[in-house]
């Protein structure tokens, strides 16, 4: 298969490649956002745990 012919997408390149590019971006960002949201919750939980332990001290 010819690479430049593949990239040209039969004249539809300006519609096909931005669609795939946007999709790749949304897929990657969602992975990043999900991990960040979990890490933030873990950080908050660690802080809350420290406070709970402190409150339980005699």
């Amino acid at each position: 298969m010819n690479i430049s012919k593949f990239l040209a997408m039969g004249g539809y390149a300006v519609y096909v490649w931005p669609s795939y590019g946007l999709t790749a971006t949304v897929v990657a960002l969602n992975i990043l956002w999900a991990r960040r949201s979990l890490r933030r919750a873990q950080r908050e939980a660690r802080r809350r745990l420290a406070a709970l332990k402190l409150a339980a001290l005699p």
Binding site: A34, R35, S37, L38, R39, R40, A41, Q42, E44, A45, R46, R48, L49, L52, K53, A56
Partner: peptide, 22 residues
């Protein structure tokens, strides 16, 4: 599943299992 773990943790007030989870 990744996000829901964070959300579950956020709702938890039980020190025992928070420390187990962490």
């Amino acid at each position: 599943l990744t996000r829901a773990r964070g959300e579950v943790l956020r709702r938890e007030r039980n020190a025992h299992w928070i420390s187990a989870a962490l």
